[in-house]
Simulated scan of single mutants.
Amino acid sequence: MKIFKWFRKGPELRAKDALRLGALAAPVVSELPLHKQRFVVVDLETSGLNTLKDKILSIGAVTIEDSAIALGHQFSCTLRRQNLTVSESVLIHQIPPSEVAAGIRPEKALLSFMEYVGSSPLLAFHASFDQRMLVREMEDAFAYQLRHPFYDVAEIAPLLYPEHNMRNPGLDDWVDFFGLQVLQRHNASADAMVTAELMLILLKRAEQQGIEDLATLDISLQNWRRRQQSGL
C-alpha cells in the first residue's frame, strides 16, 4: 500500500524576502538572570479581535535590557492593508484608513519586526492574543512557525503583587495601581512603552522574591495558574 504525505505549499516569496526569512534568528533558551535578560515588549493594533481572520494593522515594540528600556531602539510600523473596513477597533486605535493604505508591505513589516526581535522572548499584556495573531500572520505570509516564547504581563503582575485586590485588572488598572504617568494610550507604540514601564517594576519585584531567571519565572507562573484554577 502506498502512503501519500500531503504538504502545505508555502506562499510564493520575493527573493529578498526569502533571504531575510532564512536568516531569522531562532529563539534561544536563556539562562541569564532576569535583570540581564533582553525582552521585546510588543503591542499590536488589529482590524478586530478574531485571531482567525482579522489583520495586524500596526506593530509597536520596545526593548528591555539590563533592566532598562532602550529608548533609542524602538520599533514602530503600520502595515498596508487594502480595502480596510473601518471597524470599532480601528476607530479606537485612531488609525485612519489613509495611513493603513499607505503603510509598509505586510511581508516586509513582519520580517523587519522579527529581525528586531532576534532570539529574544516576547512580552505583552494579554499576550495570548498578540501571540495568536503573529503566529497566524507569519504562517500565512511565509509558512513560518513562530516558536518564540511569549510572557503575559497580565499574569506576571498579579503573580508578584497578589495584594492588588482588583478584579480582572487591565493595563490601565495597573497603571493606576503603580501611579505611572501615561501621556498616551491606545496605539501600538504607546501601549508597548506603558507595558515596558510596568515590566520594569515587576522585574525589580521578581528579584526581591527570588525569581532569578526565566526558568524560575516559568515555574512560578505555572504554580500561580494552578492556584487560580483551584480558586486558592
Rank of each mutant, 00 (worst) to 15 (best):
F4Q: 12
F7W: 11
L13C: 02
A15I: 10
K16P: 00
A18G: 00
R20M: 08
A25D: 11
A26T: 10
K36T: 00
F39I: 13
F39W: 14
V40W: 03
V40P: 10
V41K: 01
V41A: 02
S47M: 05
G48V: 05
L49C: 10
T51C: 06
L52V: 01
I56L: 06
S58C: 08
I59F: 09
A61L: 07
I64G: 10
E65I: 10
S67N: 13
L71F: 11
L79P: 07
R81T: 14
Q82V: 11
T85E: 15
V86Y: 12
L91M: 12
Q94H: 15
P96D: 12
P97E: 08
V100K: 02
A102W: 02
S112D: 15
Y116A: 09
G118T: 02
S119E: 11
P121A: 05
A127D: 06
A127V: 07
D130Q: 03
E137P: 00
A141F: 08
F142H: 04
E155M: 13
I156V: 15
L160R: 02
H164I: 01
R167D: 14
G170F: 03
D176P: 00
F178V: 00
F178H: 09
H186D: 07
S189N: 03
L200K: 01
I201K: 11
L202I: 04
G210R: 08
G210M: 07
G210A: 10
D213V: 10
R227K: 15
Q228F: 05
G231L: 06
G231P: 02
